[in-house]
Amino acid sequence: MTLLSTSGAVDETVTATTHVGAQDLPARPSARDTLNQSLAMAWRATKKMRRNPEQFFDVTIQPLLFTAMFAYIFGGAISGSVADYLPIIIPGILAQTALTACMATGIQLREDMDKGVFDRFKSLPIARIAPLAGPAIADLLRYGTAATLTILTGIAMGYRPGGGVLGVLGGWLLTVVAGWSLAWIFTWLGTVARSAQAVQGISMMIMFPLTFLSNAFVPADTLPGWLKAFVNVNPVSHVVTAVRDLLNDGQVTAQVGWALLGCVVTVAVFLPLSVRSYSRKM
């Protein structure tokens, strides 16, 4: 299709609209189109974030608050002192904030989808994944903010990561990747649930067991056997352990591999599910 390419091209409408070569039009968007459309959607999402700064509350205030709170409350009881607890709790908080941040992705998508503009998105010849991928890309900003602030708060409280700069970068990166991957679960929820409240409710039900029934805050060996069994298969535990390995030891251990594999599997399952349910939904 001919597109407006220069100013004053409005007059060309006549030629553009009288010759309809429906046969020459692509049957589906190309990979490059899909990428560009997703980036345009990401641009929209960042504009939206800038106009609604409260979207950043959960990734700014929460990491500050939780890091300080958990460290001072549990520090003495679990590790004998706050300083000794920090290497355990910082990776735990990283995983937790990543998870809460990606939970918001689903809620916001659901709210967004109820608005009229999504009718237009549906009517446009764009890849069905673009309206979902756009916010997902923009949310990398949120995960990055959350991870950065958590680490900085820890350092301000006296945390000295043994992994050095590279280890910290690795841990930061893994947190962002894990947040982005897990967000597809909540994106899918956003496309199937009836309302934003429903997404919120279901997300809470998923989020709390996943973070608290993990090794994020407490070493798993203090737990009863049945709970320990769950904690050990919980993917969040793998992410937490992997982030600990990176931050505290600077080592890329097998746990990092498992955590990444978990991320890949999550995306491979929930991304297609999300696109499918979005395309069907009216």
Binding site: L25, P26, A27, D119, S123, L124, P125, I126
Partner: peptide, 15 residues
């Protein structure tokens, strides 16, 4: 996808 390239839709409620 081809149909979407041929049709412009203006909704009842401005989208």
């Amino acid at each position: 996808h081809v149909v979407r390239q041929l049709v412009g839709v203006t909704g009842q409620y401005a989208s």
